[in-house]
């Protein structure tokens, strides 16, 4: 287990930023912590990297206690947050300076920096002052900086915040490549659903410091929606076949040539399709209506509700 928290809480003078969170992140997993602004995501990153002390509860990251062994955790973690880079230094210098903070020196450091510069397509501008870079390019350098010591665990706090769609797609592609190639554990905080859906195998939803749900998208979906909804598209009008299914006690709604029906289990659909085919229906497609992260998120945080939360 890379991250394991037990009822961890953080009380700021006026706000309870994290409220008794329990979560586990396994090695090699990309975990996404989703929540609106001010939900407690950044505080979680700060707690897990040992730069804030928990007010209650505890956590172990990479096997170390966050309260007592923060510097050992930080040695093996890379963190990308909305903190600024050194604008007066070049992209290369930013990476070199950072590498030294993780005890990298000489040729291994230079080689690693060259490698990152190439991976992130920064070669042409590597020696330009960072202050002259676009926001998207700066974010790439920030990500490269977090990776300079090839960390076992990577924390990303809103990696695409403030980026235009092009740069953010670009950055996500780099991230996806990194995750696939390196088999690294990633803890991603975001309020961008598509980002989390694309990268993460496991998701936590946090609101007002409380972890509302945690698990894979399939698990979360199964917890909320116990039934499975299928849409079957036929070659012919669907209404007669709705009537036919009713004889078997199966309720289906017909709309033009589409049949919409609810089953208890995914496997049940095979029998229904067989019945329809036997009665002469020509089936074009049968699609299970999957609940995406979008549906799950808004199930837990109804629209309009969480926006009122002020931190």
């Amino acid at each position: 287990m890379m991250i394991e928290t037990t009822n961890i809480s953080k009380q700021y003078p006026r706000v309870l930023a994290v409220d008794g969170v329990n979560l586990q992140v396994e090695k090699g997993m990309v975990f996404g912590l989703l929540g609106p602004n001010g939900a407690g995501k950044t505080t979680m990153v700060r707690l897990l990297t040992g730069i804030l002390r928990p007010s209650a509860g505890s956590a172990r990251v990479l096997g170390f206690d966050v309260g007592r062994e923060g510097d050992r955790i930080r040695r093996q973690c890379g963190v990308q947050t909305d903190t600024n880079l050194y604008e007066r230094l070049s992209a290369r210098d930013n990476l070199l300076v950072w590498g030294r903070l993780y005890d990298l020196r000489g040729a291994p450091l230079r080689n690693r920096v060259d490698e990152l510069i190439e991976q992130f397509d920064l070669t042409e501008r590597a020696d330009d002052m960072l202050g002259t870079f676009s926001k998207g390019m700066k974010q790439k350098v920030a990500l490269a900086r977090a990776l300079v010591h090839d960390p076992a665990l990577l924390f990303l706090d809103e990696p695409t915040a403030g980026l235009d769609p092009e740069s953010s797609t670009d950055l996500l592609e780099y991230l996806q490549k990194y995750v696939e190639r390196a088999d690294r554990t990633v803890f991603l905080c975001s309020h961008r659903l598509e980002e989390v859906e694309r990268l993460c195998q496991s998701v936590g939803i946090i609101h007002q410091g409380r972890l509302l749900a945690c698990g894979s998208i399939a698990q979360l979906s199964a917890q909320i929606w116990r039934e499975v909804v299928f849409t079957i598209t036929l070659q012919q009008p669907a209404l007669p076949y709705a009537g036919l299914l009713l004889q078997y006690g199966i309720k289906a709604e017909a709309h033009n040539s589409a049949l919409s029906l609810v089953v208890q289990k995914q496997e049940d659909i095979a029998g229904i399709i067989r019945k329809l085919v036997h009665s002469g229906a020509e089936i074009l497609e049968a699609v299970e209506q999957k609940h995406g992260l979008h549906d799950i998120y808004f199930h837990y945080l109804p629209r309009g509700n969480h926006e009122l939360a002020k931190y």
Binding site: C77, T83, N84, L85, Y86, E87, Y102, F155
Partner: peptide, 14 residues
């Protein structure tokens, strides 16, 4: 002022 300190706090430097 330049908001670069937080990044340093995440490194192993005590």
């Amino acid at each position: 002022e330049r908001k670069t300190l937080e990044g340093l706090l995440y490194t192993p430097v005590t």
